[in-house]
Every structure is written in structure tokens, then in C-alpha cells.
Computed example of a mutant assay.
Amino acid sequence: MLWDLLTATTRIQGFVAGKTWDDYAADILLRSGVERQFEIAGEAMSVLRKEDPETAARVPDVHRIVGMRNVLIHGYAEINDLTVWRTATGDLQSLVQAVEALLAEAGPPVP
């Protein structure tokens, strides 16, 4: 699940790199891609909270990540594009770094 979170967040970073708010607001494909990756990140954290609550508790803002997923999936009519944009362009790097540290601590995956 941590790998899924890392993959989704780094994809979001790649999607929005070099983009402006105006680019994001005008591009339904970009918005859809970012939202989908947030959904994946939130689902991964929802599962992790159930399967390994101790590790999930070490993920910064885990409850907000799951909450965003819930809004995107269940409250789709209420999605605030500016909130999604600010989250995508905000402090994802610190989340990426925290997840990378957790993965490094866990060691390589067992085949």
C-alpha cells in the first residue's frame, strides 16, 4: 500500500509539473488524472489503516488522504477544483519523502 501511495503521489507531481492553475482549470483530462491518483492514494491508505494501523499512523495526514478520496468518489458533485489543485501543488513532496523513509525502513520487498 505504501508503494501505491508513493506511485500515486509522484504521478500527481509529474502531472502538475510546469502547469499553472489556468492550465489545470482548462484541462479536464489533467484534472481527471490528478483526481484518479488521489483516489488511488486514498484507497491505499484506507486499506493500510485496516491492515497495518501502526504503519498508517506514521503516514503524515493519513486521515486527510482518505477523506479526500471519499470526497472525490462519493461527493463528486461537490469537488472543488481549486482545493484539489492546491493539494496537488502544495506539500506533496514532504509526503513523498516520509513514505520513501518508511519504505526504506521496511527494506526490500520479499519475493
Rank of each mutant, 00 (worst) to 15 (best):
7 T>G: 09
7 T>W: 07
7 T>L: 09
7 T>H: 12
8 A>N: 12
8 A>M: 10
8 A>T: 13
8 A>H: 12
9 T>P: 00
9 T>Q: 10
9 T>G: 00
9 T>M: 07
9 T>V: 14
10 T>W: 00
10 T>M: 10
10 T>S: 11
10 T>D: 15
11 R>K: 15
11 R>N: 15
11 R>E: 15
11 R>M: 10
11 R>A: 12
12 I>W: 08
12 I>E: 11
12 I>R: 09
12 I>Y: 10
12 I>S: 11
13 Q>I: 09
13 Q>F: 01
13 Q>R: 15
13 Q>G: 10
13 Q>S: 12
13 Q>P: 00
14 G>I: 03
14 G>Q: 11
14 G>N: 11
15 F>N: 10
15 F>Q: 13
15 F>C: 09
15 F>G: 08
15 F>D: 14
16 V>F: 14
16 V>R: 12
16 V>S: 12
16 V>H: 14
16 V>M: 13
17 A>Y: 00
17 A>S: 12
17 A>E: 14
17 A>F: 00
18 G>Q: 13
18 G>E: 12
18 G>N: 12
18 G>F: 13
18 G>W: 13
19 K>D: 03
19 K>A: 09
19 K>E: 08
19 K>N: 05
19 K>L: 08
20 T>N: 10
20 T>Q: 08
21 W>D: 01
21 W>Y: 10
22 D>G: 00
22 D>S: 12
22 D>N: 10
22 D>P: 00
22 D>K: 08
23 D>L: 07
23 D>Q: 07
23 D>R: 06
24 Y>P: 02
25 A>F: 03
25 A>I: 01
25 A>K: 08
25 A>W: 02
25 A>H: 06
26 A>D: 13
26 A>Q: 15
26 A>F: 09
26 A>I: 05
26 A>Y: 11
26 A>E: 13
27 D>I: 04
27 D>N: 15
27 D>V: 02
28 I>D: 15
28 I>T: 13
28 I>C: 00
28 I>G: 04
28 I>N: 13
29 L>D: 07
29 L>E: 11
30 L>F: 06
30 L>C: 05
30 L>V: 04
31 R>G: 14
31 R>I: 07
31 R>C: 10
31 R>N: 11
32 S>V: 03
32 S>I: 02
32 S>A: 15
33 G>N: 12
33 G>P: 05
33 G>A: 15
34 V>W: 06
34 V>M: 07
34 V>L: 01
34 V>S: 05
34 V>K: 03
35 E>M: 06
35 E>C: 05
35 E>P: 02
36 R>Y: 09
36 R>H: 11
36 R>D: 08
37 Q>C: 09
37 Q>V: 01
37 Q>H: 09
37 Q>G: 00
37 Q>R: 14
38 F>E: 03
38 F>T: 03
38 F>W: 08
38 F>H: 04
38 F>N: 02
38 F>Q: 01
38 F>R: 03
39 E>L: 05
39 E>C: 01
40 I>T: 04
40 I>A: 01
40 I>P: 01
40 I>C: 02
40 I>E: 01
40 I>Q: 03
41 A>P: 02
41 A>V: 02
42 G>Q: 04
42 G>E: 04
42 G>F: 03
42 G>V: 04
42 G>C: 04
